[in-house]
């Protein structure tokens, strides 16, 4: 029997190297911010993966959920003086309830009807935070959000906040892995693969779709709260339709139904976004190009490319071994 460490040695080394590089880079505040953001978006992409990758329910309105998490957390913290960590959890719970409510009609829809509903939902949230000025500060947003305080430890720098975020990323990955490899996860996948047969085997399809929406909303809401704490400032512009597209692109680019996909997608897309910051106007165009590249060349995302390469190498080495065998025999 191989142990966990032996089985995943390559992955563990890769992660360790990345952590060291990240920690070195993160000494600069700006890089620490980027690293924190990658973590936040990775959580959102993971949550989308549960909903879209595994359960097959498309959502182009996750920026709306992200906004609810960010605003509820911020408002609870600043207006009601709720302790910061409690506000983060409550923000996620409120987002989960919002996801639950959207899911009640959404779970009856499929494909393009569902995507239209979710686009409309994202747009509604965007309009509400943009126009409900007395509460949300309107288009000016809310600034000077206090630091996150984790059991007495004040996360008063981007680096500290980023470390906390990445701990949560790891927790999210574990939670996702466990959900997917359980009875619940199998029900999700069965619904994606064939809802008719799933229902015929005793799965309450609607209930599980709603559950997937709620889980996804909880994680996205939490990511929204983390975003508010990391940036210290939120405004409606962060939560528009482009952001929803960005989340989806991250997931698709990284690769759906994989462990590493959401992280890779989040990292690559965010770096592209930062590098082309001066071309802000054309960001939609850049995402479009990414989506086209994925659709045409890597339908399984970056992780899929890796697996394909691995399979090709294996084939090659097998062939070599075979040839050698033939040569020996001859």
């Amino acid at each position: 029997m191989k142990t966990f460490v032996q089985k995943n040695l390559k992955a563990i080394i890769a992660v360790a190297v990345l952590v060291v590089i990240a920690l070195v880079l993160a000494q600069k505040t700006y890089y620490a911010l980027i690293i924190g953001l990658i973590g936040i978006y990775a959580i959102v992409a993971d949550s989308l993966d549960i909903l879209f990758g595994y359960t097959g329910q498309i959502s182009l309105g996750h920026a709306g959920l992200f906004a609810i998490g960010a605003y509820v957390t911020t408002l609870l913290r600043m207006r009601l003086g709720v302790p910061s960590l409690v506000a983060l959890v409550l923000g996620a719970i409120v987002t989960m309830l919002a996801g639950f409510l959207v899911a009640i009609p959404a779970s009856k829809l499929v494909k393009h009807f569902l995507s239209l509903l979710m686009i409309a939902f994202g747009q509604m949230v965007y309009l509400i935070v943009n126009t409900w000025t007395p509460v949300t500060g309107g288009s000016l947003g809310i600034g000077e959000i206090p630091y996150l305080n984790v059991f007495g430890l004040v996360l008063n720098s981007n680096l500290k906040c980023a470390i906390f975020i990445w701990i949560l990323v790891a927790v999210c990955m574990l939670v996702k892995y466990r959900i997917i490899n359980s009875r619940t996860g199998r029900a999700f996948i069965a619904i994606r693969e064939n809802p008719v047969a799933a229902r015929g085997l005793g799965i309450d399809v609607r209930r599980y779709k709603i559950m997937a929406f709620a889980i996804s909303a909880f994680l996205t809401g939490m990511a929204g709260g983390l975003y508010a704490y990391l940036r210290g400032f939120i405004s409606p512009e962060t939560f528009n339709g482009t952001q929803s597209t960005l989340f989806m692109t991250m997931l698709l680019f990284g690769g759906i139904t994989t462990v590493a996909g959401p992280v890779i997608g989040s990292a690559v897309l965010l770096l592209v976004k930062e590098v082309f910051q001066s071309l802000a106007l054309y960001q939609g165009l850049i995402y479009a190009v990414f989506i086209l590249i994925i659709l045409f060349f890597f339908p399984n995302g970056a992780v899929g490319v890796y697996y394909n390469m691995q399979a090709a190498m294996k084939k090659k080495s097998n062939k070599k071994a075979e040839e050698q065998e033939v040569a020996k025999n001859a």
Binding site: R186, A187, I189, E193, A197, A198, L201
Partner: peptide, 20 residues
């Protein structure tokens, strides 16, 4: 009407849904 991308074992395990 199989769950095509799941393994054979997983397909049958979905069948256990109501029993678990």
């Amino acid at each position: 009407n199989l769950f095509k991308k799941m393994t054979v074992l997983e397909n049958v395990m979905v069948g256990c849904h109501g029993q678990t």
